[in-house]
């Protein structure tokens, strides 16, 4: 497998009220060409900040990438100037967000917003760009494409808006599409439409997808590989089937046991006790220890490394080896 993007020891911190908030705290991650990698975690795990760090979208201040590299096609994105980053963002690297309404500009037509990146990145004429925009809307399964080009975002439904966002992201044939909770705001029947669209596009265009989600159902449906984050760190990484069949970190196991499933009929859910520690006050040692059923004294003093526990399978637990 050919490496597309490699993150090395990424640390993205925020500073507020004299506190240091360690949102992403030493993440190493590789995305291979054409794969779908799911980044799973709960709120505050650092999954969204990881993706915003890749895109160079960390607001500074209060945020700062304090160390690490994001290597993409031979360049370290962390060290690029904003101007150079702009030639990559929306071009080689594209991103779609949870709430398409807030990422579309309400005062411009869909047509204007869809043709803009084509005219900037590919220097197309207005006519060419419009033709391409029509083709893109058809690609994402929008009928009546000509009509949609003339509409404003508020005139479209949530599912339609997400299709438009995907069309926009695909406009310049990106190598990597980052999708941050792309279906979380959508109804299930609409979510099913968008997920099947993303699968089709991936097969057709061979784009790699970094899928950020909290929903293990979406992961099972979409991912080739899975990375689980907790409290700013990667705690487990494995191919899809391996992760579901043989989860090694107690947090991953806890998540799997905590979700109600359509297919079984157990009465009691195995909740994970307690809450995620705040990012300005991580506990010493293993960050999951305060909630872990297998905790020992060693866990509260010694920070576990992310170690190899099987073929392509890593876990950050003193007892996973």
């Amino acid at each position: 497998m050919e490496t597309l993007l490699e993150i090395k020891d990424l640390k993205t911190y925020f500073y507020s009220n004299k506190r240091e908030i360690r949102a992403v705290d030493g993440v190493d991650l590789t995305i291979y060409r054409g794969e779908t990698l799911a980044l799973v975690g709960e709120s505050g795990s650092g999954k969204s900040i990881t993706s915003l760090s890749i895109m160079g979208l960390i607001p500074n201040p209060p945020g700062k990438i304090v160390s690490g590299q994001v290597l993409f096609e031979g360049r370290d994105l962390v060290r690029l100037s904003e101007k150079d980053m702009q030639t990559i963002r929306g071009n080689r690297l594209a991103m779609i967000f949870q709430e398409p309404m807030t990422s579309l500009n309400p005062v411009f037509t869909i047509g204007f917003q869809l043709t803009e990146p084509l005219r900037i990145h590919q220097k197309m004429s207005k006519k060419e760009a419009e033709k391409r925009a029509l083709a893109l809307l058809e690609l994402v399964g929008i009928g009546r494409a000509a009509e949609i080009l003339k509409s404003y975002p508020h005139q479209l439904s949530g599912g339609m808006r997400q299709r438009v966002m995907i069309a926009m992201a695909m406009a310049n044939d990106p190598q990597l599409l980052i999708a941050d909770e792309p279906t979380t705001a959508l109804d299930v029947t609409i979510q099913a439409q968008i997920l099947s669209l993303m699968k089709d596009l991936k097969a057709k265009m061979l784009t790699a997808i970094l899928l950020i989600t909290h929903d293990l159902g979406v992961v099972a449906e979409m991912a080739d590989r899975v990375v689980v984050m907790y409290a700013g760190q990667i705690v487990e990484e494995a191919p899809l089937l391996e992760l579901f069949d043989n989860p090694r970190h107690p947090y991953t196991r806890g998540l799997m046991a905590a979700i109600p499933r359509l297919e079984d009929e157990k009465e009691h859910l195995d909740a994970i006790p307690g809450t995620v520690p705040p990012a300005y006050a991580y506990p010493k040692g293993c960050r999951f220890a305060p909630r872990c059923p297998l905790k020992t004294d060693r866990c509260t003093t010694e920070m576990p490394e992310l170690i190899q526990v099987g073929k392509d399978h890593k876990a950050r637990c003193l007892y996973a080896g």
Binding site: A192, G217, V219, E221, L241, F244
Partner: peptide, 8 residues
């Protein structure tokens, strides 16, 4: 439509 957390 519900994506189920079971890749099998």
């Amino acid at each position: 439509s519900v994506p189920e957390p079971n890749p099998h």
